[in-house]
Every structure is written in structure tokens, then in C-alpha cells.
């Protein structure tokens, strides 16, 4: 195996983690990563060395991941319900629309964003989003697609997409509150 092939292979676990986080389906993620590695190994000359190898591979992976979403469009658009019957809104607000509990002060953003462990918690929280929510959230935040594009690629309606993104962000917030900010508060 060439040095280049060895370096590409070494990045496989990381690529698989991104693909899983985005696709929420192990088989699809495996396919996307295999296609990425194949594309890389077939055209090593297109790697100019300008960017780091991982950056280049992740760029290819994002395209392969979107291909997978397109290929499994039907499943992607129909696996929405059932996974999240619990409506966080109902827990957060009183019937009159006021907060049940005032949101906590998360303090100066740089305090959290300067810490490596914070990003580990963030990533774990992202991975714990329920399937469909996680998928559209990652499409928005990792693939950086706009909502029209996400609707087009997944077949999810705009109304449904906003509900999913809303829930995903509330869940992420809740997860960060419980797993990071509550603990930070206790320490200080």
C-alpha cells in the first residue's frame, strides 16, 4: 500500500464518525465513506496538498453523503414521526406561554468555547439527537445547506423541517444545559 493510501485509510474512522452523525444509518455511512476512499484512491492526483488531507477527504465525503441522502430519499422523508412524540415546548412553557423556569445564564461564551471538553460534550449532544432531527440539523450545520436545499434533498416539507430544526435546537440546548452549563455553575 502506498504512503498516500495508508494516510487515507488512517482517516477512515473519523470520516465514518462524521458520516454516521449525518446519515444516522450505519450501512449508508459505510457506503458514503467507502465511496469517498475509493474516489480519493482513484484520483490521488486531484489532491494538490494545498489543504490538509482530512479537509480534502471531508470535502469529498460531504458530496457522497448528499448522494446517500438522495438515494434514500424515501426513507429519509418518512422516518420522521414516532421518534419524538414528547414536545419540549410543553415542558418549557406554561399554558399561558410564559417560561416554566427562567433559562439559565450561560455566561461569557468564550468561557465554554475555549474549552476542548465543551466541544466533546457538544458533539455527543449532536449525536444524541433523534434520527430525523439529527439528520436535518446536521444538514444545516455540517453540510451548511439552506432550508430550501434541505427540503429538496430530503423531501421533507418546509413546515415539517422548521418543526424538526426547532426541536433539534431545543434538545441541543437542553443537553448542553444538563451536561455542561449546570456543572460549570456548580464549580464556580
Amino acid at each position: 500500500m502506498s504512503e498516500f493510501a495508508r494516510q487515507v485509510q488512517a482517516l477512515r474512522p473519523q470520516l465514518l464518525r462524521y458520516a454516521r452523525n449525518q446519515l444516522r444509518n450505519d450501512a449508508w455511512a459505510e457506503d458514503a465513506v467507502s465511496e469517498t476512499l475509493l474516489a480519493a484512491l482513484e484520483k490521488p492526483q486531484s489532491y494538490t496538498g494545498a489543504a490538509q488531507l482530512k479537509t480534502w477527504l471531508v470535502g469529498i465525503l460531504k458530496h457522497k453523503v448528499i448522494d446517500q441522502i438522495r438515494r434514500h430519499r424515501r426513507e429519509v422523508s418518512t422516518t420522521s414521526d414516532d421518534e419524538d412524540r414528547e414536545d419540549l415546548d410543553d415542558l418549557l412553557f406554561k399554558p399561558n406561554g410564559h417560561w416554566q423556569e427562567t433559562p439559565a445564564d450561560w455566561g461569557n461564551p468564550s468561557a465554554a468555547l475555549g474549552q476542548r471538553q465543551f466541544f466533546e460534550v457538544l458533539e455527543a449532544c449532536m449525536e444524541h439527537l433523534p434520527g430525523q432531527q439529527g439528520r436535518v440539523f446536521m444538514m444545516r450545520e455540517w453540510l451548511e445547506l439552506d432550508t430550501d436545499e434541505i427540503c429538496k434533498e430530503t423531501g421533507v416539507s418546509a413546515t415539517n423541517l422548521f418543526v424538526l430544526l426547532h426541536r433539534a435546537r431545543l434538545r441541543l440546548r437542553d443537553c448542553l444545559q444538563v451536561n455542561w452549563f449546570a456543572g460549570q455553575r456548580a464549580q464556580t
Binding site: P109, A112, L113, F119, E141, R169, R173
Partner: peptide
Amino acid sequence: QVSLMRGAMAGWRQLADP
């Protein structure tokens, strides 16, 4: 909190991209 999460996601994208 939402602003902080926006910053956090941007930071995460940077970490993901060496």
C-alpha cells in the same frame, strides 16, 4: 444561549476542519 450555540457550531466546524 442560542447565540452561544451558533458560535459553538461555528467552532465545531472549525475543529472538524483542520
